[in-house]
Design a protein around this nucleic acid. Structure first.
Length: 201
DNA sequence: CAGAAGATCATCT
DNA sequence: GATGATCTTCTGT
């Protein structure tokens, strides 16, 4: 299937975060192909105190300000990578963190990369996902509109199966809005266990 | 240059 | 529910 075009990403983060649910994330490497359907994502906009880019452009956050349709991969907690898709127009910081996918292809490879864990946990959680997909520092700024790492259109999930959850977490930097979109009651969603049913659209 | 915090996860009680 | 792992990045002095 054809990768999503750049126009898909060049929109507000909240719109992309919703629309990316159901899309297929694909990564081709020498080890093989892995693919999965996005079931959970989180939007980080320019105005969000919880966003890395809230206090402006730094070497680390520069990708968030650059052209939409590229990857922003960052390293955190001394051991984990997280994968974001850069949105908005160039010059406006915005990214959508991909938090969980349902494995569809290359499950054996995911198992090999993740070690002895339940299949349900292969890509449930942003750092587990990058492990399963072989996404690391080298994938920062990679172009998502073409192979090897790209998104393809997927099943159109009903809007009522998506919830928005502002203000997840406890820390100071969590005070901002962290809009999380997830497929309700989906077993591949990472959490929290209870998503507030705060709204629809 | 020191210090703190971090878009997390696995493991333990 | 709590904690440790592990190290990068940013901030303040």
């Amino acid at each position: 299937m054809r990768p999503l075009a750049r126009a898909f990403y060049a929109r507000p983060v909240l719109v992309v975060a919703r629309d990316v649910i159901g899309c297929i994330l694909v990564h081709d490497t020498a080890e093989g192909r892995v693919a999965g359907q996005v079931v959970e994502a989180e939007a980080y906009g320019q105005e969000d105190p919880g966003s890395h880019a809230f206090r402006g452009r730094t070497p680390r956050t520069a990708p968030m300000f650059e052209r939409p349709g590229h990857a922003y991969v960052y390293f955190t907690y001394g051991m984990h990578f997280c994968f974001n898709i850069v949105c908005e127009r160039e010059g406006v910081a915005g990214a959508v963190l991909i938090r969980a996918v349902e494995p569809l292809e290359g499950i054996e490879l995911m198992r090999a990369r993740r070690g002895p864990v339940a299949d349900r946990d292969l890509a449930r959680g942003p750092a587990r996902l990058t492990q399963a997909f072989g996404i690391a520092r080298a994938e920062n700024r990679s172009d998502l509109t073409r192979a090897p790492l790209h998104l393809a259109p997927g099943e159109r999930l009903p809007v009522q199966d998506v919830v928005e959850t502002p203000r997840i977490g406890l820390g100071r930097s969590q005070d901002g809005r962290r809009w999380r979109f997830a497929v309700r009651d989906n077993r591949w969603v990472s959490g929290p266990r209870r998503l507030q049913d705060s709204s629809t659209d």
